[in-house]
Design a protein around this nucleic acid. Structure first.
Length: 481
RNA sequence: GGCCUCAUCGUCUAGCGGCUAGGACACCAGGUUCUCAUCCUGGCAACCGGGGUUCGAUUCCCCGUGAGGUCACCA
């Protein structure tokens, strides 16, 4: 049996976002699941739209997500080259054969003439068909004019691995362009030649191509080629709208997510389960589980909205499940700059304390800041606190002084701190919501922090007491009595 | 406009003739001696409409409606 081969074939016109990369995820999963090959091919036949650097960007993105390809422009393979601009001879050969077979002809019209035909059709609210204007005896093709496919209009029934049985009538078949006047092939022509030569068995692509499939089938027939299995995946929609997710919606580069500290495996999990599930109530799938369980026939038929909140949850879930040492390695570049001078043990302990609240690595700096920097007392944390704002400065100062006295006796082990904090609660007669809030704010100057005893133990005795002093003097100087 | 596709909580979804329509995210409430988070418990919340078929339709069929795609010398 022939090996299963899938491909991802983007045009190098910019970065890859989650919508664009989903077909790559599905194609990769299918290839891995069947011990087949996953091929990267760059469709760079539109030189006007090409964006410098995007080839590298695409390859970097696939690698960053762990969607490594078995053949591609930078690594070669048995069907190289994998860049369409380097395969022009192949297209010309096939085009020549079509001309000889009477299935391709030179387009005698100028672009503006064709445009006039089109506008006429649109004006009459009729679909535009070039073949209604097919010339009787077109001139010989000299390579300076577009080469068109001479179609054979008829109805088609075909099977889509996701959508099921599909059919259309002859009215959708038209004479599309095979080779443009600049000598480059259109996507419509090139992808069919390449998929065939590269022995692609399963073609996964977005639903924007579905209307063209009958035309492709017509061309496959003219070329006497067997079409691959086709699988049409629905679009990923923007968060608000109903339209395909696009860069205009603010769809982020997948590399931006990587840079922000989203785990590749979480991104893959999120993307794969956007429009696919295994029929159980499982939400989190490892890469291996996805490879094992993925199936085209369980891919959803309708588009799904991209919801970043869900991605945040998935990513947080992966982070929480990471071993501390593994997490530590991964967050190396995300510490606040002041953390540089601290020892690994201290940072690991801090990381252990903040791990469960981390949704993505880029948050680490903000969340862990106060473990490394002495922040200036922020009056707003007190004046806007729903409990503390009711207390007078005299009362606050008194509480802090009692706290200081009590903590001076502590060895700052978590257990001892917990005990002394509890004693303090009784001694002062305040609820934790008051006393602990005050101590927490005084020692962190942060809106949120891990548990109080843990935080104090981590900060250590001298630093904690120092910060209590700082808060005390801030109260005194701002007091005026 | 023609052609094609799609349609379950706000969002991601389970369901493949009989269920109090299930789960997850988000949100709300409570608990975990403080905050944020985690975790636990509970809550809110959906079958687009109308006809059929059937003893029985979320499920099958038809017609609407809505949404999307496509009708490029872009992919």
């Amino acid at each position: 049996m022939k090996p299963l081969r899938t491909r991802f074939a983007p045009s190098p016109t910019g970065y890859l976002h989650v919508g664009g990369i989903r077909t790559a995820v599905f194609a990769w999963l299918l290839a891995r699941q069947n011990q087949g090959q996953f091929i990267l091919r760059l469709e760079d036949t539109d030189k006007k739209r090409e964006v410098a650097g995007s080839e590298q960007h695409v390859m970097k993105s696939l690698r960053a997500l762990g969607l490594m390809y078995d053949e591609g422009p930078d690594i070669g393979g048995p069907f190289a080259p994998y860049r369409q601009s380097e395969r022009l001879n192949s297209y010309k050969q096939k085009a020549q054969k079509l001309i000889e077979a009477g299935r391709a002809y030179s387009d005698p019209y100028t672009a503006s003439e064709v445009q006039a035909f089109r506008e006429q059709a649109v004006g009459q609210k009729r679909p535009f068909l070039y073949r209604n204007h097919r010339p009787d005896k077109p001139p010989a093709w000299d390579g300076t004019k577009p080469l068109r496919f001479k179609s054979d209009p008829k109805g088609y029934k075909w099977h889509d691995a996701i959508l099921g049985d599909l059919s259309t009538g002859p009215e959708v078949i038209d004479d599309f362009i095979l080779l443009k006047s600049d000598g480059y092939p259109t996507y419509n022509f090139a992808h069919i030649i390449d998929d065939s030569e590269m022995q692609i068995t399963h073609l996964i692509r977005g639903q924007e191509f579905i209307a063209s499939v009958p035309n492709y089938l017509n061309l496959y027939e003219a070329l006497k080629l067997e079409p691959p299995v086709m699988a049409t995946v629905p679009h990923i929609l923007g968060p608000g709208g109903r339209k395909k997710l696009s860069k205009r919606d603010g769809a982020k580069d997948v590399l931006d997510y990587i840079r922000d500290g989203f785990l590749p495996e979480a991104l893959i999990n999120f993307i794969a389960t956007l429009g696919w599930n295994d029929g159980t109530e499982q939400e989190i799938f490892s890469r291996e589980e996805l490879v094992e369980k993925f199936s085209l026939d369980r891919v959803h038929l309708s588009g799904a909205h991209f919801d970043e909140r869900r991605l945040l949850w998935v990513n947080g879930s992966y982070i929480r499940n990471l071993q501390l040492n593994d997490l530590y390695e991964r967050v190396r570049d995300y510490w606040p700059s002041e953390a540089q001078s601290y020892e690994e043990d201290y940072k690991k302990q801090v990381l252990g304390l903040v791990q469960e609240r981390l949704k993505y690595f880029a948050e680490l700096s903000e969340i862990s800041n106060f473990f490394f920097v002495d922040l200036p007392p922020d009056p707003a944390l007190i004046t806007e606190h729903k409990q503390l704002k009711k207390l007078s400065k005299v009362e606050l100062i008194d509480l802090l002084k009692q706290t200081k006295a009590a903590l001076q006796e502590s060895d700052f082990a978590v257990g001892d701190l917990t005990m002394r904090l509890n004693q303090l609660l009784e001694q002062t007669g305040h609820k934790p919501a008051v006393l602990f809030s005050l101590i927490r704010i005084a020692t962190t100057q942060a809106a949120a922090s891990p548990g109080l005893a843990d935080t104090l133990a981590e900060l250590g005795k001298s630093r904690s007491l120092q910060r209590l002093d700082k808060q005390l003097s801030a109260f005194s100087t701002g007091l005026g009595h």
